[in-house]
Amino acid sequence: MSEQVHYPDEQARDQRGESWTVFHAAIAPLKREEKMRAQRREQRQEFWSYCWGLVLALVLTLVPFAMVYWAVLPRFSLLIVIGVFALAQIIVHIRFFLRIGVRQKREDLQLILFSALLLIIMVAGTIWIMFNLADRMSMPMHP
């Protein structure tokens, strides 16, 4: 159907590997029935992805909460556990809710990683410098 239509920007998409013509050509031979089935399968997959995300997020929230609530570990170990669980949960959210995968041909993942790099430089740098300063100036700043 629509693959006959000429789009002026088509070549732009070709060059960026996002060709819709290729996509139409790939999907056209499929019968309508099969297409419907593929779509339903995809929908089911996505639904379960959100469910998995919810379950994992719940576990990753409740476990550190319980550990803090009943203070099962010394403080320093608790902090490490909290940090690890938080990181895991952030990754779960990015994977299952924001639906960022490693196999996608999109700039999103690169963008997130680059932002994370800068965020780490800026936040870790801030904390390093300011705590060092506080140490040397005897300021009340120790967690």
């Binding site: 740098g125 390093w128 060092n132 300063l133 040397r136």
Partner: peptide, 18 residues
């Protein structure tokens, strides 16, 4: 450029290592 900002306040009082 994101890794050099402290050179604007070398004299703030942080350690020589930083």
């Amino acid at each position: 450029s994101f890794t050099v900002w402290v050179h604007h306040f070398f004299t703030m009082g942080q350690s020589a290592n930083i």
